[in-house]
Design a protein around this nucleic acid. Structure first.
Lengths: 341, 341
DNA sequence: TTTAATAATGTAATCGATTACACAATATTA
DNA sequence: TAATATTGTGTAATCGATTACATTATTAAA
């Protein structure tokens, strides 16, 4: 077992004390240039690396950041993670990633474990089932900076980066209206979550702005899944003449609907136009590519990491910084005005 | 700033020494039951948590595992990560994830940073551009257990978990032969990587087993991308009558080919059958679903984590443990014998 | 009753780096 | 030349937990 060398090894070799070595390594101005040069040379020679645990113990800083997402294998979240790592790694922070599987219980456990590991900061996108915030208040109480991304709770002294979901819903709906739709269905996931409620609000907003009434019967709640899309499709088929456009808060639901429609020979986009949400990778690969809303997860990750860095540098000063990422409309065949595939 | 309590706080409160507290917390048999009870109660009362940095400093164990993948946002890798976390987290290990972006230089830097952070073990799927192994020998030299998954290098004293890629290639090709194909193209990514070379070898193996000759002109090298698939499609179209089946070492290339074929009105699966590789999420969502090979990344992650745990528990004893994961054939419309879509 | 064994706890060193304070050597100023 | 800065290093405490090695109190054996 090759043990790592320490400042004591360097000190012994040069016949000086560890304190001097430490100062030299940290470029302390009290140390003479000659000594510094010697120490640096010896450090290199002995392959010296600072011991992270010792530093952490002394300073109380671990340089670890805790990250909680519902699932890492979702396109959206894994790209957020990419953005976060890209921003934090160069600053010397390492990221510990945890998955809540959308479970409140798991999320609580994770937070406990993170605090136990003494992370310097926490970034979280909360689980669907999280309604309470006690576990997160504990974080703030221990003075650990906390940043929400995408899915947040209302909490004092916490920053957040979220998509402007209202604008996302508005953009998608406005686009459908522009493409000539006037009888638009809104297929929305669990409206208890901010993100979905806001997408719905955007849907409403677009109607108001265009002075169009929406049909309350066409507001349909549905999971973000293919199967749910199939079910919704049946509903819509029964009132097919009341509908000429569909806005879905999920690409999966949109695809589910689209699949059933194609089986039924309902012409997309001629008879009905569809826009989804999230720009999932598959949306561009379909034979009938799906119009959707890009959430720029990579940028979202970067933005939230930047905010966390800010908080880490201004320890004590608790900022309440909220950033909204602008959604982008991605138009594809599923909503094109007159093109036939 | 609410400081965490220490064993000294507990000791002071109970008028005993920190040593006794430490022993009580670790359930040392020398300590009386009465004292243990008192200490445990006080620890709870003060919200005591062991200081991870102090433990790490004393023991030399950080309970951190370094993980390197080319990209975390790839379906395959993010699912491997899920499997790894699932296995390691319950054992008290935390995972630090890094991305090499398939760059050798980045990979080297990452390894350095990990060693600096004194991870207890390293799991890695090497970058495409990694040909040397000096950075990894350094890992072994420091006696840090190393486990490869999916993409490995030949290195003594290291374990690995990889897909049985030969079997994968054989399964896919054999399936095509069973479906009546006899003129099968093999579209293969960079054969310098084991995984691709093996898939190719499986292709050959299936031909031998079925006593069929393959046409060397139909071995085509191509990137794992849509664009590359489009190019390959052009080539194949020029010799369309020489081909009745295609095995691709990548789902993306397969989709690219399929797209061009559909544009050209070439009937899949009637005229030509296609099988891809990886079971990417999109393959099941296509209007013409793609047959492919499932790599079971989640299981792969679990298996490699288990091996690492083994090594961590048998410090010193360097095992050389190789596991092969069995690929599974997933048949879909793109290779079905007589069904017309 | 004395001695040896056992049980329970204390003392102090250790892991590796930082840093307040002390001190010596040299340079500067009066 | 004496007094005072300035410069460069050393000493030792500190962060929090563990543990080899005392030490004391208690019990069992002789």
């Amino acid at each position: 077992m090759k043990k790592n060398s320490t400042i004591y090894d360097i000190a012994k070799k040069l016949n000086i004390t560890a304190a001097t070595v430490s100062r030299a390594l940290n470029d302390n101005k009290l140390i003479s240039a000659k000594t510094k040069k010697l120490v640096l040379a010896t450090a290199r020679e002995l392959n010296y690396e600072k011991n992270a645990s010792a530093l952490a113990l002394k300073s109380g800083k671990t340089n670890l950041i805790g990250l909680v997402v519902p699932y890492i294998n979702r396109h959206f979240f894994s790209n957020i993670i990419m953005g976060i790592e890209e921003e934090l790694n160069p600053k010397g922070y390492h990221v510990m990633i945890f998955q809540s599987n959308d479970s409140y219980k798991k999320e609580k456990d994770i937070i406990d474990r993170m605090l136990k590991s003494q992370v310097d900061g926490i970034m979280i996108s909360i689980a669907k089932s999280t309604l309470e915030s006690k576990h997160l208040e504990k974080v703030l109480h221990q003075n650990v900076p906390l940043v929400f991304f995408d899915r947040k709770l209302q909490l004092k002294n916490t920053s957040s980066v979220v998509l402007d979901d209202i604008e996302g819903g508005r953009l998608a709906t406005h686009h459908l209206i522009q493409q000539g739709c006037s009888k638009i269905a809104c297929v929305i996931s669990n409206p208890r979550l901010d993100i979905y409620r806001d997408r719905y609000n955007g849907f409403i907003k677009a109607h108001k702005e265009n002075s169009i009434n929406h049909n309350p019967d066409l507001i349909i709640e549905a999971d973000s899944s293919l199967a749910s899309g199939h079910e919704v499709a049946e509903k819509i088929i029964r009132m097919i003449n009341e509908v000429d456009g569909i806005f879905c808060s999920s690409d999966y639901t949109a695809l589910g609907i689209s699949q059933r429609f194609q089986e039924e020979g309902i012409d997309i986009p001629k008879k009905i136009k569809i826009v989804g949400f999230s720009n999932e990778p598959f949306t561009s690969l379909l034979e009938l590519p799906l119009s959707t809303i890009e959430q720029s997860p990579y940028e979202m990750g970067k933005a939230s990491a930047k905010i966390l860095l800010d908080q880490l540098n201004n320890q004590g000063v608790s900022i309440d910084h909220s950033v909204k990422i602008h959604p982008k409309l991605v138009t594809r065949l599923s909503s094109k005005i007159s093109l036939k595939k």
